[in-house]
Design a protein around this nucleic acid. Sequence first.
DNA 1: TACGTGGTTATTGTATACAAAACGCGCTCG
DNA 2: CGAGCGCGTTTTGTATACAATAACCACGTA
Lengths: 222, 222
Amino acid sequence: MSRASERAYSAIRAHLLSGSVVAGEQLTEDQLAQITGVSRTPVREAVRRLEDELLLVRSDTKRLFVADWSRDDIEEMFTLRQMLECHAAERAAKRLSREQIAALEALNRELTAAVEASPPDVVRFLEANRAFHEAIIDAAHSPRLGQMLAKLVEAPVVLRTARTYSQDDLRQSARDHDELVAAFAARDGDWARAVMGSHLRRAFHTFARAVGPANDSDAGEP
Amino acid sequence: MSRASERAYSAIRAHLLSGSVVAGEQLTEDQLAQITGVSRTPVREAVRRLEDELLLVRSDTKRLFVADWSRDDIEEMFTLRQMLECHAAERAAKRLSREQIAALEALNRELTAAVEASPPDVVRFLEANRAFHEAIIDAAHSPRLGQMLAKLVEAPVVLRTARTYSQDDLRQSARDHDELVAAFAARDGDWARAVMGSHLRRAFHTFARAVGPANDSDAGEP
DNA sequence: TACGTGGTTATTGTATACAAAACGCGCTCG
DNA sequence: CGAGCGCGTTTTGTATACAATAACCACGTA
């Protein structure tokens, strides 16, 4: 994407994740243009992407609001992610080269180091984790699958604000990744799928615990 | 979507499906603005959507081309659709009301009537078929799932040009739908999933037969 | 008070002009 | 002969002005 439009996208995104806006709040293109320092044209383009990523939603009359995710929304996204990423892991098991598997091992060493630092380096963990999953998805070699997963994987960062990760959670993630690498090395798609499934399902519960008990409110503007 | 932008979208889409453009051909926003009769601003918006639907692709330097789908691309999309729509069928089995099941039956009577007409009314068949699948996806009550499937279900129409459907194919579809309704009436999610799986997998092979033997060319601009 | 109704403001949608970037082509120079 | 370089042309990206639509508010009426 071009300069202004890209700048608008990351600026708006950062603005949303900074916590300075509350879910359900209305935004206008003019406001966003001022915040980002570009004109409304590229802002509108950035807003399109953020709508697609479900960070912003539009009312039936085209007003723009900060998305408000219910617990059901989060569960839905994790369920879809699990379905798709298990598939990706299975495909990756058949396709990863020895070098790529070695690269995954290296990424997980990095991740483990971040976990074992004191205190654990969450930012470094998240980055290594992201790279690990991305490498698997890439290796699945299925462009539309990658496109869908990109949205699902990125999305929950909205809720990451002030999130606390226990060291146990992080360690378990590292162990899951180790087992995934083992499954890949054995070229065992079923194994990889199973490990990925439990990995993501646990991640959901860790997440859900933080966001509170189940309820059935819907996403969107008030 | 607003008037001009929506008009542009359907006009460009129609233009692409009309067969008057060949895969891999370059298009410019100006051309499309002329064809659609609106200015470049709404055209750009429509183009965004068509890119997202993979009917158009951009080169690394932002030039716009008519997408060229390989057999692998088609197989990927059917595989993803199968994975997601089986899930939708399973969820729908738990959620469809008696009225909604009755509505599905009605849709399939309409579909059957189109099939048994002489000659079979393919347009009517396709419309009833679309509505049938859409009703199931809606009943799954999973908005992001619906969004993803919408893209996957709509996409293959690109290849529908001059497609010939045998009456046997159409009849088998109608039978599958009957069995799906039975599975829903029995509230048997596993059954629904299984029927949907075979239904879509057969559809893929019917489709693939028409588009030719496997090859490994990639999508996109030349 | 509850409920429309008219006009006013706020917000989104579109057209157009201009800026930036990419392409194509002929040229030069090694 | 071919690789790289300028330069006009084409194409995409951005800003801005204006048009269309939706929300808001005050007011009048039952």
